[in-house]
Amino acid sequence: MDARSIIASLTDRFPEDIYDADVESDIRTVAKVKPENVVDVCRYLKDELSFGHLCCEFGIDYPDRNEIEVVYTIGSYEHPVVLNMKAVLPRDDPQIRSVVPVYWNANWYERETYELFGVEYIDHPNLKQLVLPEDMLGEWPLRKDYKGYPNKTAKNLV
């Protein structure tokens, strides 16, 4: 299964939800997905196109465009193609359906994205902080306008 046929199949199946689909190289493809339907798309990817391996899931903050992108990097155990699927969310109230029912290992990725970017995942089984202490929740440190960085408290002798 090569990159072009995958993109073709995906856009055929979800003409409304998938846009800006592109083939970067033989093994890299990108697509944007409407956030409402991400679970269905993921299920289709996993069941039909054998994209069984969720490499990672993370957020990117674009304050000047006022949006947060959630990127799903999905690979496969059968073919070498990797799909970078993006869902664009508004920055003020980022909400998206959780893909944990499809990809089990998305659990921690979503928890981390939640506490670092403030993306709220609907239907997530256990949405709470993962890596930060509890009192830091709500600061969203990986957003570009985070105030606590750089942290100038270190004793630098020079």
Binding site: V131, L132, M136, E139, P141, Y146, G148, Y149, P150, N151, K152, T153, A154, K155, N156
Partner: peptide, 15 residues
């Protein structure tokens, strides 16, 4: 000693 390469980080405790 000083935070090392992570001395500016939002998560580490310095000094």
């Amino acid at each position: 000693i000083s935070g090392g390469p992570f001395y500016e980080s939002y998560s580490t405790h310095q000094n």
